[in-house]
Simulated scan of single mutants.
Amino acid sequence: MYQRNCNCQQNNDMTPEPIMAPKKVCYTQSCRYVEQPVICPIECCHVENVVYYPKYYPQYSQSYIVQDNNGCNCQE
């Protein structure tokens, strides 16, 4: 009859050796959110437009005229 290695002891106690099945691997999945920096360059540009408008400044000139009495129509 067929016999297996059964670790039999001297007192004929028949305790069979356990059979080891192949290891089963169980996986669980979870997500861990980690911040990833995303650089968004933004350039602020100020445009100043120059608009000309008229502003008047008076410019005075002075003239000096010398005249003799012959040009005068005065009667004395």
Rank of each mutant, 00 (worst) to 15 (best):
K55H: 13
Y57T: 15
C8K: 04
I65Y: 08
N11D: 15
Q67V: 09
A21Y: 02
Y2R: 01
K55R: 15
P41M: 10
N7Q: 14
K55A: 13
V34A: 05
Y2L: 02
V47D: 04
E43Q: 09
V47L: 03
N69D: 08
I42K: 02
N69Y: 09
E35I: 03
Y64N: 09
C31E: 09
Y53E: 14
H46E: 13
S63N: 11
N69K: 12
Q10P: 00
N12F: 02
S61I: 13
Y60N: 07
Q10F: 01
D68M: 09
Q59G: 04
Q67G: 03
Q9M: 00
Y64T: 07
E48H: 11
S30W: 12
C72P: 01
V25L: 10
P54S: 05
K55M: 12
S63C: 10
V38K: 07
H46I: 15
P16N: 04
E48C: 07
C26I: 06
V66K: 13
N73P: 06
Q10L: 00
C31N: 09
I65G: 03
N70D: 11
M20E: 01
M20D: 01
V25H: 09
P22K: 05
Y52Q: 04
Y27T: 05
M14H: 08
N5C: 03
P18C: 05
Q59L: 08
V50W: 10
S63I: 10
Y52L: 02
E76L: 15
Q67H: 02
T28L: 11
E17M: 08
Y53D: 11
Q75T: 08
N7H: 06
V47I: 10
C26A: 15
V51P: 02
I65N: 13
E17G: 03
Y2I: 05
Q10E: 03
